[in-house]
């Protein structure tokens, strides 16, 4: 379980896809970090990730971890966004046997999970296939 404090810290990324762009070399970090691992700059500007992209690769989870059992089977993939950034996320609203590498997807706001029957609900991004 993440707990409320850690979940709350990730809200800018989970809800608004806020990333950091190195002011010197332009590398984008998601989530943001303090030092650029390419040019060692400590100066960043805030940017927002592209909200469409394509599936770079994916797998289907059939034996789910605790808390995700009711959702199995479900797909998790690496999405290459239109701005070049790659992120890992669940792919939802899809027929699993029709998912394909290179398929166009768009981001949607979804519930990521719930902490037991009385804990917080966690929200964030998932991807859905576009027509």
């Amino acid at each position: 379980m993440l707990g409320p404090a850690r979940y709350w810290r990730e809200v800018p990324q989970r809800y608004r896809y806020e990333a950091a762009k190195c002011a010197k070399c332009g590398k984008v970090f998601f989530p943001p970090r303090l030092v650029c691992n390419k040019c060692h700059s400590k100066e960043f500007t805030q940017t927002t990730l592209a909200q469409t992209g394509s599936i770079e690769t994916f797998t289907v989870i059939r034996v789910a971890p605790t808390g995700f059992g009711d959702e199995a089977p479900y797909a998790v993939g690496i999405i290459k966004l239109d701005d070049g950034v790659r992120i890992t996320a669940q792919i939802t609203d899809c027929e699993l046997d029709k998912l394909d590498i290179g398929q166009k997807v768009r981001l949607e706001f979804r519930r990521l999970g719930k902490e037991g029957e009385s804990g917080i609900l966690r929200y964030g991004y998932k991807f859905v296939p576009v027509a």
Binding site: D70, E71, Q90, T92, D93, E108, F109, R110, R111, L112, L121, Y123, K126
Partner: peptide
Amino acid sequence: PTPDQDTITISVEAAR
């Protein structure tokens, strides 16, 4: 709705 959709997620998408 899928298990990951609720009033909050629908509201966010409609608001966007």
